[in-house]
C-alpha cells in the first residue's frame, strides 16, 4: 500500500520533470525559465536538509489540523445527522463556508491570530474540515435499514449503536475521505504559510518565488509529494488496521 503510493508518486514526478526538460531542450530555454538537470541536482543538494525540516514542520501542522478536523467533523456530523433544523443548518453552513476561498479568509485569520502556528493550524483545519464534515453527515444521515431494522423494532436502538452501525458500514468511504483530506490539510497549511506564516515549506516556496528559483520550487514539490504520499499511505494502513481490528472483536 505504502510502497505503491511512493513509486506512483515517483512516476508522476519523473513524468512531470520529463515534460519540463523536453520543453526546455526542444525550445532551447535557459535555466532561468526551466532549470537544467545539473542546476536541479545542485539546488537539491544545497536545500535538501533545510526543506526536509520545512516539510516536516508543515506536515506536523497539517496532521494536527487534520486530527482536529476529523474529531470535530465526527462530533458535528453525528449531531447534525438527523433531519432536524439543526442538521440542515449545519449542512448549509458547511456547504457555504466550503465555498469561500481560503485566500480571502486567511487575512482575517492572520489579523486575529497573528502569523504563527495557530493561524496555520486553523487554516489547515478549515480547509480539510468541511469536506470531512459533509461526508460524515452524509454517511451518518443515511440509515442502513437492513441492519438497523431489527434493533429498531425490538426497541434496542440507541444513538451510539446507530452511529456505530453507520460508521462501520461506511468505513471504506470514511478512510478514503480522511486520507484524501490529508492532501487538503497539507495544501491548506502550505497556502497559509505562503500567504503569511514565518515557517514551513510554503514560506520557503514564497521566498524561492521571490528569487524566481524554479529549481528550489521543484525540490519543494518533490519533498511535499513524497511526504504526502507517505502520510496518505500510512493513513490507508491505519484505516485498514482499524477495520481489521474492529472486525476481529
Amino acid at each position: 500500500m505504502l510502497h505503491r503510493r511512493i513509486y506512483q508518486f515517483f512516476i508522476i514526478y519523473l513524468l512531470g520533470l520529463l515534460v519540463l526538460f523536453s520543453v526546455k531542450y526542444l525550445l532551447d530555454l535557459s535555466d532561468y525559465v526551466i532549470p537544467g538537470l545539473e542546476d536541479l541536482a545542485q539546488t537539491f543538494r544545497t536545500v535538501f536538509l533545510r526543506y526536509v525540516s520545512d516539510v516536516v514542520d508543515t506536515i506536523s501542522v497539517a496532521v494536527i489540523g487534520q486530527v482536529i478536523s476529523v474529531f470535530m467533523a465526527i462530533v458535528v456530523g453525528v449531531l447534525g445527522r438527523q433531519t432536524t433544523w439543526f442538521g440542515s443548518f449545519i449542512k448549509v453552513a458547511a456547504y457555504n463556508v466550503q465555498a469561500y476561498p481560503i485566500v480571502a479568509i486567511a487575512p482575517i485569520i492572520f489579523i486575529l491570530f497573528g502569523d504563527g502556528f495557530l493561524s496555520r493550524l486553523l487554516i489547515a483545519a478549515m480547509i480539510c474540515y468541511f469536506p470531512i464534515l459533509l461526508s460524515v453527515i452524509s454517511i451518518m444521515s443515511e440509515p442502513v435499514h437492513d441492519i438497523e431494522h431489527f434493533y429498531r423494532v425490538t426497541g434496542r436502538m440507541r444513538w451510539q449503536l446507530e452511529v456505530k452501525i453507520r460508521a462501520f458500514e461506511n468505513l471504506n468511504k470514511l478512510t478514503t475521505v480522511i486520507s484524501g483530506s490529508a492532501t487538503l490539510a497539507m495544501a491548506g497549511t502550505i497556502v497559509a504559510e505562503f500567504i503569511a506564516a514565518n515557517a514551513g515549506i510554503g514560506y520557503s516556496i514564497r521566498i524561492a518565488l521571490y528569487q524566481s528559483d524554479l529549481a528550489k520550487i521543484l525540490t519543494a514539490l518533490f519533498l511535499i509529494g513524497i511526504t504526502l504520499s507517505v502520510y496518505q499511505g500510512l493513513l490507508e494502513i491505519a484505516g485498514y488496521l482499524v477495520k481489521k481490528g474492529w472486525a476481529s472483536h
Binding site: 431489527f150 456505530k164 462501520f168
Partner: peptide, 10 residues
Amino acid sequence: SYNLERLPDW
C-alpha cells in the same frame, strides 16, 4: 422480519 436483513459484521 425479512430475508435481506443483516447482522453487523463487527
